[in-house]
Design a protein around this nucleic acid. Structure first.
Lengths: 329, 329
DNA sequence: CTGAAAGCGCTAACAA
DNA sequence: TTGTTAGCGCTTTCAG
């Protein structure tokens, strides 16, 4: 034991966790002994005795979408700086898998859990409640749980207003899969609802659900063009992956973007500003969201301050894929 | 205790860890009691008593590069299926940060650690050795540690041969930062060495180190064009992010790719096949690498079979960004 | 400010 | 096959 090289084991513990309770010179001796013996405290014993694991778990749909990996990256960095570790889970947009993942993770005695979105199986939420795991929702806004998210309805609304203001009246949408995904549903509702209010409602068949892949974006464009009674002059896509797929397909079809077709995405991935034409999109600062989430978590775990409901800003950035219908960009 | 609703606590433990050692009917009673009381075993107590945490840690440079997030995603899924959790760390290509991260993680009593590349601070390795943490290296091949990786020298060599065979003789390269990054260095060496052997050595100033960002790729192209005594007809980039940045800049400069400039990348990101022209690149199956790593880890931890040295295949896929110099594509 | 002692909730021999 | 008995290595009252 490290205390052979000095004093008792309780003191070592204190020296590590609350140095302020230990006299300066004993502190020194303890520290010397520690790196003389290369002593490394055992986290599981610590956790068992103290009830806190200094570990938080994050469960995302997938890391294959850059938006989530950026958020995780931001979160992990802030957490690490605060002395916390990050356990990672993913469920690929399947609620049952999510429940399993959350169950497995909550056995780990994590101090907190971060989930994406507000749509979760009752079992998932029950698990969290009965294990008393502090939970924070991200990406969406909730009135029932602490959350840090975007106003997804407003995202759809902004896209609608932008396109309407440019003069577009025949619109289409390629949405993400709405089942178990409140972000996708709200963006769609925001878009459709706003257009309805502006008296430019979407034609039936002008909205198409697709998985969040380039192929989904391509297929979505084909479907919308095939289904809509009149060819839309502008399309809003549920995220940038879809929008990029849509853009690539439009280019491949020989459509002139934005002259013949305007496209709006959502997320503002790094690549979105680089493609030609650059994508008009609604910027969501996902790594900032990750950092803010971590900060809120740290405050909750260390100072006991429960996070409330925090809304992250969204902003449309106009670039090359939108222009008035039938006009030069 | 759950055993109130049946029998002793050792039996509960056995029922959970080695059901085969428990009679069928007692197993049933235990299970009933378990979900009647909503009992959840405590991982830290388990870890403390058994010495195994069923947790592995992975430390990557960053999740902002899709190549690493894909690998982590693949790894996490296989690990989860095997009942293991994934702790995540990142260091942003800084060896000192890596040491800190590894130290923090090794206190967690992780059963194994996966690192990226073969370049690590002596401290990092020492930490791992003295804590007895099983370690596996990924992305690179090593003769000293269990590893699953790519032959990075061969990657550079393949790019060189492809371009040489196409007829290019004036070549350039945009490399990643070589310090603390054996992958970047080996790819460069493979490219330069092979060209030298083919008697088409690079002109001084025709190779440029850049950070792995689109901006790096763009700056790299400008630097190479400005520095090289004769304008290269083809450029090899250390990864796809660089290659894409280079491609975007070339397009912006009005260069005709591939007629005036051929570009080869490395990684084969999903986006690389979608851009116009599509990127010729050397495909590395990073999510497969993640899955294989997880499988090897599981075998090591569960069956005691230490992984050896496993080489993952690399393959050049020719697409639209390479063609003979000065010829139509 | 520091030491002594009692667990935290489980697993792993060892008995029965 | 199941129960008993010790701890795993720390934190945390409670004394001193």
């Amino acid at each position: 034991m490290a205390k052979l090289a000095g004093v008792s084991m309780a003191t070592v513990s204190r020296a590590l966790s609350s140095p302020s309770l230990v006299r300066e010179d004993t502190l020194q001796r303890v520290r010397q002994a520690i790196d003389a013996l290369g002593y490394v405290p055992d986290a599981s014993a610590r956790t068992l005795a103290s009830g806190r694991s200094r570990t938080v778990a994050a469960v995302v749909p997938t890391l294959d979408n850059a938006i989530f990996s950026h958020a995780i990256q931001g979160m992990q960095q802030v957490l690490a700086a605060g002395g916390y570790q990050l356990l990672l889970g993913s469920h690929n947009y399947d609620p049952d898998t999510e429940t399993d993942v959350v169950r497995a993770l909550s056995e780990r005695a994590v101090d907190a859990m971060v989930l994406v979105g507000a749509d979760h199986a009752p079992d998932t939420l029950a698990l969290l409640r009965q294990s008393g795991t502090r939970t924070i929702l991200t990406w969406s806004l909730s009135s029932q749980y602490p959350c840090i998210g975007f106003d997804n309805f407003e995202i759809g609304a902004q896209a609608a207003r932008h396109l309407y203001d440019l003069g577009h009246r025949r619109l289409g949408m390629i949405s993400g899969i709405g089942a178990h995904n409140d972000r996708a549903r709200l963006r769609t509702e925001g878009f459709l609802g706003t257009l309805r209010a502006l008296r430019a409602p979407l034609a039936p068949g002008a909205v198409c659900e697709q998985p969040y892949t380039f192929a989904g974006g391509r297929a979505g464009l084909r479907a919308v063009l095939a289904q809509a009674p009149a060819t839309p002059t502008a399309i809003f896509c549920g995220n940038d992956v879809l929008a990029l797929g849509c853009l690539f397909e439009a280019t491949a079809m020989g459509l002139d973007v934005p002259r013949q077709l305007s496209i709006v995405g959502c997320d503002d991935l790094p690549i979105s500003a680089e493609v030609t034409p650059a994508l008009t999109t609604i910027a969501l600062e996902s790594s900032e969201l990750g950092r803010q989430t971590a900060l809120a978590l740290l405050r909750w775990l260390q100072d006991g301050i429960e996070p409330g409901r925090m809304e992250m800003p969204v902003a449309l950035v106009q670039r090359g894929t939108t222009a008035p219908p039938g006009e030069p960009g």
